[in-house]
Computed example of a mutant assay.
Amino acid sequence: MSVTVTTWSLEQTSPADLRPAAEPPGEVRIVRAEVPSPEFSRFLYTAVGGDVHWTDRLPLSYTQWYELLSRPGTETWVAYERGTPAGFIELAAQPEATVEIAYFGLLPAFRGRRIGGHLLSYGTARAWDLSGRWPDREPTKRVWLHTCSKDGPHALANYRRRGFTLFDTRLTQEPESTPPGPWPGARA
């Protein structure tokens, strides 16, 4: 059995494209995880993506995770609510002054609380000012990402509200599967 998956690619081509979300109520802060930590990044990846079929990085070894996180211009920004990790955004510098939002999302318990729009706004702004933290990089000219129909139901709308515009849509057939979850028996 297969399922049709729609993948949308979106971009911003100027910092002026960013339309920031309001900050959520309560104690939410966003901090860069400056020390590459495969354990922490894998925790974030499985906790955020476990219920929406994120599986591409699951087979990676510790060394492969470390190499990905250690690339110049790769940054992980983590949103915390009252000291608890709520979600993350991973930026990946690419050639031609481009930055990809490689991963973005919230742990299920933190969705629907206005944290996502704020984290996406903050992370996108950090993509635009990435060269200030990585002096060998030229200023960012383009920020892009992709999302798909397996992601949360509000993902595409959140990207568009933040000022991202669609530049490509693709349909693929994938085997129907059960999301892996962060671990067997975890709350979905």
Rank of each mutant, 00 (worst) to 15 (best):
S9K: 11
L10N: 11
T13C: 15
S14W: 06
A16F: 01
D17S: 11
D17I: 04
L18Q: 01
R19M: 06
A21E: 08
A22T: 12
A22L: 13
P24R: 05
P25A: 14
P25E: 13
G26M: 02
E27F: 10
R29E: 15
I30A: 07
R32C: 05
R32M: 04
A33S: 11
E39A: 15
F40T: 13
F40N: 10
S41L: 02
S41R: 00
R42L: 03
F43Q: 04
A47N: 09
G49D: 00
G50Q: 00
G50M: 01
D51N: 12
W54R: 02
D56V: 08
D56K: 11
L58F: 00
L58Q: 08
L60F: 01
S61A: 02
S61V: 03
Y66V: 02
L68Q: 07
L69I: 03
S70R: 10
V78T: 03
V78Q: 03
A79T: 10
A79V: 04
Y80R: 04
G83C: 13
G83N: 11
P85M: 06
G87M: 01
F88H: 07
I89G: 14
A92W: 09
A92N: 13
P95K: 14
A97G: 10
T98E: 14
V99G: 07
E100L: 04
E100I: 01
A102I: 06
Y103A: 01
G105E: 00
L106P: 04
L106A: 10
A109L: 13
A109T: 12
F110C: 09
F110D: 09
I115L: 05
G117P: 09
L119Y: 01
L119N: 03
L120W: 02
L120R: 03
L120V: 08
Y122I: 07
T124F: 07
T124Y: 03
A125R: 12
R126W: 00
D129V: 11
L130K: 07
R133E: 11
R133Y: 09
R133P: 12
W134Q: 08
P135C: 10
D136W: 12
E138K: 11
